[in-house]
Each structure stands twice: as structure tokens, then as C-alpha cells.
Design a protein around this nucleic acid. Structure first.
Lengths: 297, 297
DNA sequence: AAATTTACATTAAAACTTCTCATGTGAACA
DNA sequence: TGTTCACATGAGAAGTTTTAATGTAAATTT
């Protein structure tokens, strides 16, 4: 404990994230030589080399790789504990790391922007961080403590986390202006016709209608914006949340297909890791989110 | 994170444990004025007072109480993470906090002293700490991370921990030289006779024969030595582990009562909290303990 | 092949932090 | 009322960290 001070670990992590000493000096606000000395001290304390460096490029050693991950863990939990102590002061403080899937902003029932506004309107010294990722990644990040809360349509729920149902998201299938189906009358469109065309799917495949489950997707996309783009090419059909289209300026460039037969919902959940750290900031935000959804109904 | 350095928390925790600045200076190896400054800095950083101090005595404030517990948590996990990083060096290092119930030393099948000797004979930089407490307390301490491993006859096993069976401990009922039953011939002693006398029981009541379960205890004791003492007064009967008596110099001062009817076993377990931190030192010790028990049979 | 650039190491002196020593304060106690 | 105890304070000493300037070695360019 004498030698493994937080500054050393902080330096190490920043250097790794910056990919070398040169960039890290701006991130850390100290000179390159100070970094050099700190890394040397850390290596001396640990008793092994953590990274190869020099003109040949920056590279973690095998042990350095492990040390980097552990150091990140230490620092995150240190910051969380830190925030807990500071919260005894009265005002809410600390990091608050939120994860969502993309295109959450237009979810009217949830209205995340409004929730965050309300949260930040309070006297606070909170440092917000919002991460957008897939449900799988969000789950992982919650478990490791990378995130405090996450909002997503969690299909596979794990026992380490607690989930609160928030709202439903309605999806329909769309095609673009240049697609053969665009000008076909409604009564000529049915599932058989549709299934003859290629469908673009989300990479975490939770947003595909059960009806079309069997169709092998020809394109895969990790992002809602990208999905809309693929549909606009006129080469693919694709599912989109209704709320996403509703706030879309070029709404007329897309056409809903068989909205009465092809519409389905996904349920959004709020997920947290229970009681590892007891943070007022986290509690309050969770409360805010849940309340917003209840009143929105 | 800037201000809540580990030295400050370390100082705080030590001061609390020493009950004031004056004693803490020897524990910390710095002067009283340095401590005064550190506590002041910590309070400034936190923004609230953590302890009342002065001639009137040392006392934590309400917030200080909470902060103290959290600070202890931080330091323990910091030391554990620390040890993990150091173990990548090759030799085993760090704190190793072991808990047992009392009178484990004479458990021949386990032979804890021998196990610890073997463990410490390896090249190591481990700081051992052995805590003696009741099974309930040990369970608590394992869950919070206060302890890495514990050995006790765990009756109530909780899902947060993993248990490995180690060995059996045989118990019998004893009376002292001055007890009415001491000189009674064997054939006149049966359960009815015995149940007319007062029985001393362990405070965690896991060591009382099922046969005598109904008898309301008149004395309760938290420790094996104390149990022997109570029995020696001649006023109480009491259960003791056989191995405890066998290594007892004044063995003839006690008498076994109806050893054929009144003998029972408790099972000793090794308990750990699974995979929260991955420490070589912990793994090796656990391995040592289990091996010792397997070979001892 | 020489010159240049890049990325880090080294060093001495400056800047900053933390400690100690000596002394001060104020409450409790005799 | 004076003494003791437990901590606070302040000036200077000691120690630590940073900077600025320069060195080095590998990669790139010329």
C-alpha cells in the first residue's frame, strides 16, 4: 500500500487509454517526464514491467494487460466509495455512469432528456457519463461496475442484476422510396410478399418481429440511424421503432408495411446491480426514471 | 479523488482504532501534529466533521461513524487489489485474513498450526491475520470481505459463500471434580439423572447434544476455555470437544458422563466468498487446508 | 547513408507537500 | 487555582514531485 498510490494507477490507466505518454500529458495535465517517472515508480513498486514503449510504439506487456484491468477496477470502485463519503455531506456527488441502447431519446414515455434535466436541476456535483451500447454490453458493464444504471430492452436477464419494467416500444417494418414494395397498394402486401425481400436486422437481434423470425437477414446493423439508412437505400426492408419515425423529418421517405399484421413490442427495463455501493445519486436517478415512466402512462 | 488519498483514510481508521491521536502516533509512526493535520485535511475534503476530540475524549460524529465503516471497506479492498497486482510478480503477497472459532488448534485432523507453517514456509510476503469469533460473526465477516477464509462448524450456510467439508469434531458431556455426579458409578448415570443438573452451553448453541436439546441452559459461555472453567466450578455440566480434553493437562479434574450415550459430532467447514477477488495467496492456503484434512484421515 | 522526427529517459533545480519540533489553547480534574 | 491531558498551530526542515532542458535510440524521410 505504500507504493501503489492512486496517482500512479491513474497515470497508468490514462496512459493506456491515450496509447502513450505523449498524449497522456494533456489528459493528465503534467509533463511527459513526470509521466515517465510515475510509470517507472509504478513498475518499481510492482516489480515487473507493465508496458513496452519508445519509438516502436506503446504496448502493454502480458502482466501489464492484467494490471491495467485491475487498476481500472480499483479506480472505479475508489471513485464510487469516494462519492459515497462525499454524499454524507448533503449534496449528491460523484460519477454517475448511465448506459442505454441508441434511439432512446425519442422514447416519449420515458423522456430521458427530461429525466436527466430534472436530476441535474437539483443542487449537485455529479459528473454524468452516458454510454450507448448493446444490451449485452450494457449487462456486462453493469456487472463489472462500469455502469451504475442501464436502460434497454433486456431480453436475457441475469441474476446479478435487478430489473424494473419501464415502458413498451412499438416496432413496425419499413421500406424506402426506391424499394419495389413502396408503391404497392396495401391490399397486395402480405407476409408472403414481404418474406421474398431482404431484411436488415439489428446486430443484437431483439428487434425483429417474431413473424419474420425465420427469414435469414441479408444485412446487419448496430445502430438505429444506420438501420434507417439501409432502409433508405431501397434494397432492404427493416424494422424501426414507431417513435423513431415519428420524430423523423423525412418521414415520407419511408413506408410502413402491413402495420396491422406486422407490429410488435419490446419492453424496456431499467437495470442496476443491487446494493454493491449505496449511492444517493444513483438512487435518486433511478427514482426519477421510474417516476417519469409511471406518470407518462 | 484528488483529496481523498489513502493516507488520509488510513490515518482516520487507525485513529479510530486507537481511540485518539496520541496513541495513533505510535501505530502510524508519525507525530501527533501530523495526524492532526491529516484529520483536518480529511475533514476539509469531505466537508464535514468526522470526530469530536480534545480533553473530553475522542468520539466519532454520526457521519464519522458511517465514514469510518466505509473507509475500512475502501482500505480492505484497496489492499486486496494491491495484493493482486503484486502477485503478478510471482511471490505471494498481501493480507490474508483467516477466521476460526476457538479451540481449533487442538483439532488433530485439521492441524491448523501445521498448515500455516507449511504455507509460511513458502517464499512469501504475506501478512497473516487470525480472527477468532463465532460462526455467525465469521459468516458476516466473510461476506463483507473482512475475512478471506474461515473455519468453523457452520450450521447455517448462506448462499453467498462456498463451503468445503473438512472434518468431524466429537463432543461429550463433562462434569467437574466437585460436581455431585463426579463420583457416581457409571451404571447409575443415565439421561434422566443428567437432565436434573444444570448445563452450561456455548453462546452460539451449536455444540449441545441433540439428546439434551430440551434442557434449558442455566449458564452460557462464549469460549472453550470458559466452558472448561464453568465445568470445573462443579456447578454445571457442559459439553466439550474430545480433542480439547485430550491435550488438557488437568484432564483428571473432569469426568466424561455416559460417553456411550452422550457423544455427538459437529462438522467443520472451510468457507470462502467465491471469486470476488482472485488471490493466489488465498487459493494456496485453501488448497493447503483441504489437503491437510484429506491426508489426515 | 545521413538527417529528421518521434517517443520516451534522465537530470538538476524549482516548486510544492508533508513532517517535525516547539509552543499554544482550552477543557477536565485534583 | 494550578496541573494535566489531548489536540491545534506555525515556522522551518525534510521529503517528494514537477518542470525544463537535454539525451538516446528507433523509425522515417530524404
Amino acid at each position: 500500500m505504500k507504493l501503489l498510490r492512486n496517482t500512479l494507477l491513474e497515470t497508468f490507466v490514462t496512459v493506456v487509454e491515450c496509447g502513450g505518454f505523449t498524449d497522456a500529458q494533456y489528459a493528465l495535465g503534467i509533463t511527459q517526464s513526470a509521466i515517465s517517472i510515475r510509470i517507472r515508480d509504478l513498475e518499481t513498486a510492482l516489480g515487473y514491467r507493465i508496458c513496452e514503449r519508445g519509438r516502436g510504439g506503446f504496448r502493454l506487456t502480458e502482466r501489464g494487460e492484467i494490471a491495467y484491468r485491475k487498476a481500472g477496477d480499483i479506480l472505479r470502485s475508489a471513485r464510487d466509495f469516494d462519492a459515497e463519503l462525499l454524499e454524507l455531506r448533503g449534496t449528491i456527488t460523484g460519477d454517475l455512469r448511465i448506459g442505454t441502447v441508441d434511439a432512446v431519446n425519442t422514447l416519449a414515455e420515458l423522456n430521458l432528456a427530461q429525466v436527466l434535466k430534472r436530476f441535474l436541476d437539483r443542487p449537485n456535483e455529479v459528473q454524468l457519463e452516458v454510454v450507448v451500447a448493446s444490451p449485452t454490453e450494457l449487462t456486462q458493464k453493469l456487472i463489472t461496475g462500469d455502469l451504475h444504471v442501464a436502460i434497454a430492452p433486456f431480453r436475457n436477464q441475469v441474476s446479478e442484476l435487478t430489473y424494473t419494467e419501464l415502458c413498451q416500444e412499438e416496432h413496425r417494418l419499413y421500406c424506402g422510396r426506391d424499394h419495389p414494395l413502396f408503391d404497392l397498394p396495401d391490399d397486395q402486401i402480405d407476409l408472403d410478399v414481404i418474406s421474398e425481400h431482404q431484411i436488415c436486422q439489428r446486430s443484437y437481434n431483439i428487434l425483429v418481429s417474431p413473424v419474420l423470425q425465420t427469414v435469414h437477414p441479408k444485412a446487419v446493423v448496430a445502430n438505429m440511424e444506420a438501420m434507417a439508412m439501409m432502409i433508405e437505400t431501397g434494397h432492404y426492408l427493416g424494422p424501426l421503432p414507431v417513435h423513431f419515425i415519428e420524430t423523423w423529418a423525412h418521414r415520407d421517405r419511408l413506408r410502413e408495411l402491413a402495420p396491422d399484421k406486422l407490429n410488435w413490442n419490446s419492453t424496456f427495463y431499467l437495470a442496476t446491480r443491487p446494493s454493491v455501493v449505496h449511492r444517493r445519486a444513483v438512487e435518486i436517478l433511478v427514482q426519477d426514471i421510474i417516476e417519469s415512466c409511471l406518470s407518462g402512462e
